[in-house]
Nucleic acid binder design. Sequence first.
DNA 1: TGGTACATGTAACATGTTACATGATTAG
DNA 2: CTAATCATGTAACATGTTACATGTACCA
Lengths: 180, 180
Amino acid sequence: MPERALNATAASLLGFLHSGPSSGWDLLATAREVIGPFWSITQSQVYRELAAMERAGLITAQQSGRRDRRPYELTSAGQAAFTVWLAQEPAPEQIRFPLLLTMSFGAHLPPETLAAFVESHRHTHAQRLAEYERTREAMTEAVPAGMGDAYGLATLDFGIRYERAVLEWFEHLPARMTRG
Amino acid sequence: MPERALNATAASLLGFLHSGPSSGWDLLATAREVIGPFWSITQSQVYRELAAMERAGLITAQQSGRRDRRPYELTSAGQAAFTVWLAQEPAPEQIRFPLLLTMSFGAHLPPETLAAFVESHRHTHAQRLAEYERTREAMTEAVPAGMGDAYGLATLDFGIRYERAVLEWFEHLPARMTRG
DNA sequence: TGGTACATGTAACATGTTACATGATTAG
DNA sequence: CTAATCATGTAACATGTTACATGTACCA
């Protein structure tokens, strides 16, 4: 067994498999919903990591159910690998923000073009914030007093604070950059 | 000529070459300094993109100077390619925040371990904020009244607001996650 | 003269993306 | 029946990372 360390994407799949067997399709949906705001994942990647983890003995495919869905189940080796991964100090975050790159070179761009980009992004972020806030309400209403999913709430709150910060940044941008 | 679209990393190198010929080493340093907070770049990538862009005729290598530094110069094709790239609508940003991934699975982790991760990240972010604020002061002092580099200031301000949001988020995290 | 910073590059690999192919199931 | 959606997967490629190799120039 090569035993090379898990990557974060594979590890998150193992994490989701703790709540029971699940197929690639469902794992993708779960990932998009739960960690989507701060961890992007593509469908191809999910199948690739599942195949690799099956080869490594971290998961096993169950009998195909309806429609060829192929639910994978965590093995004890998979559990162990996940636990090891989870206890590693997480690496610093990476942000890749193409709008900022474009803005860095704003001097080479007609002001109205940059302003249009900014406006379009502002709109997207406003929508995302609203969506996160709706999700948060749903989460806290569902479990009025208890601690429900405190960890999910905490990561959602990151998203909310992030989107608010972005929107405030847009609002304080020099007029030239927002109104051409 | 294949003419495939530039990637953002290559485009940013072309952008920097607008202020005059520069070597891979210097471009890397410039990129780290100017766009580092929101666009990570590795040394290998820089040399690879430079080689590819030279093959594509977007830049040309000048005579080697001292120490084998090989300054590249923008060609008019390179200028044109950059201009085309810059006018494209920038893609949405991507955030990959391993700490949040770990926190999502916090239920599987001893609270004091998560708390230690949080504490270590909080420290890093506090330092970054301080550094950005120092840079900002230096930038505004250098050009007291004028508009100096308004675009550089705007992107730096993004970094400042982002770091502040992260720190506030840390502060509002449930006690269990910050003090184990 | 020896260590440190400068400078360029290659190789191997890991990760991520896009496009496509294929077929099953379900709803209308 | 048929269109939309579900579901799995492959191929090709782009991008990013790590490790290493090589040598130069500067400074103490």
